[in-house]
């Protein structure tokens, strides 16, 4: 198994990851399971299908919302935030 070799932030907190991982996988590995709050009922959601189909793992990445954490490769220095409704 490879070692952590990059870092990014989730809601300001530093998270370590292995390059090649998806944002969603790296966050799950760091015990971050709630990735967004829904638009109408503010319910927590996380990775569901894991392969880019369900759009439930939406996060805000470097200011851009509606990004699927499960299929977006994590990059060193990325700023990831919980998506609340449609915003960070």
């Amino acid at each position: 198994m490879s070692q952590f070799d990059i870092q990014f932030t989730f809601n300001g907190e530093t998270i370590s990851a292995i390059s090649g991982q998806s944002v969603g996988a790296a966050l799950l590995a760091a015990k971050q399971r709630t990735l967004r709050k829904t638009r109408f009922n503010q319910k927590g959601r996380g990775v569901f299908c894991g392969i880019g189909v369900c759009f439930d793992c939406l996060v805000v990445i470097d200011g851009a919302s509606n990004q699927r954490a499960c299929i977006t490769e994590v990059i060193s220095g990325m700023k990831v935030q919980t998506q609340v409704g449609t915003n960070a």
Partner: peptide, 21 residues
């Protein structure tokens, strides 16, 4: 079924196979 932690088996599988998680 919408609570974080409920997933598809394929999703669980792809995390292991594709990301080592």
């Amino acid at each position: 079924w919408d609570i974080p932690g409920v997933m598809t088996p394929g999703g669980v599988q792809s995390l292991i196979k594709g990301h080592g998680v």
